[in-house]
């Protein structure tokens, strides 16, 4: 066996995917490992129901403050409760996925398991993709489950009517949002291992997405310059498009909707390209500096 001599040799050896198990087997192993870990924290899952319910209560009571309890945007008028919940739930679930992804890498680094996982012959990139895939699936499923009691208790979408074409467009939009957050999580996790501040980075990104996407109010309330900045976040147009599908019969042919889909796909492609460009450099750097763990 050839022993690696330099940090670059080490990185090269451990990012080699040729002699490894198949991607599917590795992905399955990561999923099984993570499910076993999560099972140890059952109480957190229960607390998640309460936390989601409390956050939903806040949005519900805040939406009751809107005059006449209605909000108008993009040619439709809808109850403030429905308007705020549609935006807030979408942003909340998406940002939870991002938080979970970054927290998972922070935990692995803090506990010293990241080095072991990243050194498996499975390959660093495959490990990143598997770990983020798990977090996206888990984040999505658990967030939806946490919202079930909220949907049952609060009168969120009373008199709500949506056509099949709008529903299909909405599903397409949601898939694009998921892909966008998958790629964003991938890149963010990459920077987490470099700067060791996953939780903090995630909090800033989440805070800004919440503000700029207009989850609580129509974007017309922003001054012109802030509206321009807001549209740099693909989630801003995505939230607007989802609301149009839900309340204004928006379809794939609607301008806002197709712009949102293109914005999400293009941003995801750029982010994945950036991830591909940076992940080996970042990994080499932390190995050379000996900072694979977080102290």
């Amino acid at each position: 066996m050839n022993f690696p001599q330099t940090p670059t040799d080490v990185a090269q050896q451990f990012t080699n995917e040729n002699d490894s198990v198949s991607f599917n087997s590795g992905l399955k192993a990561v999923f099984i490992r993570n499910v076993k870990i999560l099972w140890q924290y059952k109480f957190t899952i229960i607390v998640g129901f309460v936390n989601t319910f409390i956050a939903a209560s806040l949005f519900y009571y805040v939406s009751l403050l809107v005059p006449q309890n209605t909000i108008a945007q993009d040619g439709y008028v809808v109850s403030s409760v429905s308007f705020i919940f549609a935006g807030a739930i979408l942003v909340d679930i998406s940002t939870k996925i991002l938080m979970k992804s970054m927290n998972s890498f922070t935990s692995e680094m803090r506990q010293g398991t990241f080095e072991t996982l990243s050194c498996l012959p499975f390959g660093l990139k495959r490990y990143f993709v598997s770990e983020i895939s798990f977090e996206v699936v888990y984040g999505l499923v658990i967030s939806i489950v946490h919202y079930v009691p909220v949907f049952l208790i609060f009168p969120l979408f009373i008199g709500f009517n949506i056509s099949w074409s709008s529903l299909l467009t909405l599903l397409l939009l949601l898939i694009c949002i998921l892909i966008f957050f998958f790629s964003l999580s991938l890149l963010a996790a990459n920077f987490t291992i470099l700067v060791k501040r996953g939780r903090e980075i995630a909090m800033v990104v989440v805070g800004l997405i919440h503000l700029l996407s207009g989850s609580l109010f129509p974007l017309d309330l922003f001054p012109q310059w802030l509206q321009v900045i807001a549209y740099f976040s693909p989630m801003t147009i995505a939230v607007r498009a989802c609301r149009l599908c839900l309340f204004g019969n928006g379809m794939i042919t609607s301008k806002i909707v197709w712009i949102a889909i293109i914005a999400l796909i293009v941003s995801s492609a750029i982010i994945i390209f950036l991830f591909n460009l940076t992940y080996k450099k970042i990994y080499n750097r932390i190995r050379e500096k000996g900072t694979a763990h977080e102290f």
């Binding site: 805040v62 403050l65 809107v66 005059p67 909000i71 919440h210 503000l211 609580l216 109010f217 309330l221 922003f222």
Partner: peptide, 12 residues
């Protein structure tokens, strides 16, 4: 900032 913009909906 978020609640500042929300306040522009003029809650009574």
């Amino acid at each position: 900032t978020m609640y500042f913009f929300f306040s522009k909906l003029n809650p009574d």
